[in-house]
Simulated scan of single mutants.
Amino acid sequence: MAALGESIGIDERTVLVLGQELDVERGQPDVGNALVHRAGETLVFVDTGVTEVFRAALREAADRVGPWSRVLVLTTHGHPDHVGNNDLADELAEEYGVPAEHCVPAPDLDQMRDPDAYWVRAFERVEGMAPLPDPAVAGPALVSLFRPYRPFAAVTRTYEERPLERIRVGSSRFTGWTFADGAVRVLRTQGHCAGHVIVHLRDCGVLHLSDEGNGACGAMADADQLKIQTALGAVARLFEEGEAVLLTDGHTFALRRGAEAAVPFLDGLLDQAAALQSAVLGVTGASGPVVPGEFTARFAQAFAATGGGGANPNALFLAMMAVNQLRELGLRPESAAPGAPWSRAPLQPGD
């Protein structure tokens, strides 16, 4: 197992800084992996993780890829394991007397400003799905693990304040934003959560998937299963065409080099998504209500049978995925009471 802050050199100007897994019982936050890259004279951070240990590792990586004369911090999405050290943009700008820029996705601003409320809402959705803590307690308790939590810098702006660009990479077309004379491409995907982006470093061929590859089913309340799957397919094409040569992500501590490694991983996630939905159809049946607690247990079995894993597997995230899978199949709770049965609404009055 990699140690928090361990670095993997990709080339002389690109480093992947490794995070760690979540362990709530030990009071250990998960920390998303981050990329540190030099594009010309621009020092680029793709996410900043959290904890002082990780911050120090980012600074060491910045020294390793230099020299640089400006700083660019790019946030892939607003979850606390990816944004805790974002004020590093200000720190480096002041220390070295260089210009700095920090961009975040506008749809994630609310959760970044008030992460407690975001996670309370996430946990409220799964009341009755499994024996879980009170959401009003569990949300702030989880967020409290992520210290220091500094998601904004004085130089922070949203991506959406820049003109949206149509970006062509090989035969694929995306919308997003480019930086450093086109060497850094921020591509909108918005699957794992509402504002999610992925980042393509043109000159070294790195494609950073961040958390779009966190499993066959998104867990977050603002996840979009179709967008996750679309992003996985689009990234697989970039590797097949040689437009990307190295796949990195937010939570697996490995480099997937070339199409022969990246494409089977991406196809495997898509295969798991299809297999999971088929398995869940067998669990829910064509008629009759679904009892949430019973469904979660059977969902866990189906998830394991598909080879599902993803980042930070635990009972809470599994229940969150179960809720999203029920909604994906068109089921809704019959009342607002925790533990209320889920069923499909009639297609026609009187059905």
Rank of each mutant, 00 (worst) to 15 (best):
W119I: 03
Q301L: 12
D249G: 13
R150C: 01
S335K: 12
V53H: 15
L247F: 00
R125L: 15
T51D: 03
V98I: 10
E160F: 08
D271I: 04
E6M: 14
P338Q: 13
A194H: 04
R26F: 12
G5V: 04
A117G: 03
L209Y: 09
F174D: 14
H82F: 13
E334D: 13
L329I: 09
D271N: 13
V17A: 02
G268L: 00
V24D: 06
R55C: 02
P107Q: 07
T252W: 08
G66V: 13
N85G: 10
F295I: 08
R64N: 11
D271W: 12
L247H: 02
Q348E: 14
P338C: 12
A275G: 14
L247S: 12
A194S: 07
R188P: 00
L326M: 09
P133Q: 05
Q272Y: 04
A180F: 13
Q229S: 02
I10T: 08
G218V: 04
P349T: 13
F295Q: 09
M320A: 09
Q28E: 14
T248A: 12
M321G: 03
N324K: 15
R188H: 08
E240C: 11
A304M: 12
A274P: 05
V83S: 06
T48Y: 01
E95G: 01
P313C: 00
G49K: 07
E127R: 15
L276N: 02
R166N: 10
A39Y: 01
Y96W: 09
E260W: 07
L269F: 07
E6F: 13
A300I: 01
V98R: 00
P313E: 03
T306D: 10
G9M: 05
F179P: 00
G170A: 11
E294R: 14
D108V: 05
Q28H: 07
D116W: 06
M129K: 10
L201E: 00
V71H: 03
P346K: 00
Y96C: 10
G285W: 14
M112R: 00
V290I: 08
G258I: 10
A345F: 10
H79M: 08
A221Y: 11
Y159W: 08
L318D: 03
D203F: 08
H251R: 11
T48S: 06
E101Q: 05
Y149R: 04
